[in-house]
């Protein structure tokens, strides 16, 4: 499994879907028009979504650090 994964700061997400348009794994999608949700299992931590996000609400987290 990839070392990193994308995390969305949901309260500031504008749910535009720029992230899901670029995700190569369909690991991120806008949930009912409210905010984007990440499927951690599918995410490979490539960072394309974070780069595309116009609201700057996606950060990449370290999987090991998050589990610890």
């Amino acid at each position: 499994m990839a070392k990193r994964y994308a995390a969305v700061r949901q309260k500031d997400c504008v749910s535009c879907g720029a992230c899901q348009a670029v995700c190569p794994k369909s690991a991120i999608a806008v949930w009912k028009g409210c905010f984007a949700k990440v499927d951690k299992e599918l995410c490979i931590g490539c960072g394309l979504c974070a780069k595309a996000c116009p609201a700057n609400v996606i950060t990449l987290l370290d999987r090991e650090a998050a589990q610890a």
Partner: peptide
């Protein structure tokens, strides 16, 4: 960013507001 407009697009804000209310 390419889609920076989307961050404050009035239609986007309005539709997100509707979805959040729902």
């Amino acid at each position: 960013k390419p889609r920076s407009w989307c961050a404050f697009c009035p239609m986007g804000t309005m539709t997100q507001c509707v979805c959040k209310i729902k």
